[in-house]
Amino acid sequence: MPDPNPSALRFLEQRRSRPAKTLTGPVPSRDEVERLLTVAARCPDHGKLEPWRFIVLGKSAMGRLAKSIPSTGARLGIEPEKIDKAVSQFADAELAVAVIASPKPSQKIPEIEQTLSTGAVCMQLLNAALAAGWGANWLSGWASHDASWREQNLGLMPHEWIAGFIHIGTETSAPPERPRPDMDSITEWIEA
């Protein structure tokens, strides 16, 4: 017989990311962030490879990343409005965790399963932050897809990439509920 956890299920039914631009200080302490990372690391990880790692970015680091965006955007031919938006993503933030996909060579574990595990870490960290009472949002953005930017600004190895920046802070306003998927249109039942 199942042993239900109604409060956890209710949380998941009602969870809602908070827009990063609405997050401010205070942010979690180092000990609180370490607890959230420990929860995130309990995600599905086929083969126990840990094909991911974390880079915790404080306010000064976020400011440094914001300053790197305009030249990268110009080099890539990004539209000025998108450059400004990316600058704001970093300049206005006080804390984010970069979840780094770091696939491991494996004869048994396909890279796609390692990628899915990395996505699971992002979602687990996002939910852990929300469950702890913080506002949180999972973002990436065009700069995170540029290998040169990743290597120069975050010290990533050539085989690594950014699965997401999980912004964490104090929410200043609750977002309105958004439309959710029509379950009948995305669900198929096969009995035999």
Rank of each mutant, 00 (worst) to 15 (best):
N127Y: 12
A74V: 09
L125G: 13
G73A: 15
Q89V: 06
E151L: 01
D84I: 09
K82Q: 09
Q89N: 12
I78W: 03
A129H: 04
I69D: 08
L139I: 01
K82M: 07
T72F: 13
S148V: 09
A91P: 13
Q107V: 15
L95F: 10
A120W: 04
V121Q: 02
N127G: 13
A66M: 01
A91Q: 14
G141S: 01
I112K: 02
E79D: 14
P103V: 03
L76C: 03
E111W: 10
R75C: 04
L116N: 08
E111M: 14
A101H: 11
D146T: 12
A132T: 11
R150L: 09
V87N: 10
S106R: 11
G141P: 00
R150F: 01
P70G: 00
S102K: 12
W149K: 04
E151P: 00
G73C: 02
Q124G: 05
K82D: 03
L125S: 07
P80E: 09
K104I: 08
E79G: 11
W134Y: 14
G73W: 01
T115H: 14
P105A: 02
G119C: 06
N137P: 02
W149H: 03
V121F: 06
S71T: 05
N127L: 14
S68T: 00
W149P: 15
W142E: 03
E79Y: 11
A147K: 03
L65T: 14
A66K: 01
A143K: 01
V97M: 02
W149S: 03
E79T: 14
P80M: 10
G73F: 03
P70Q: 05
G73H: 07
E113H: 11
T118C: 12
P70K: 15
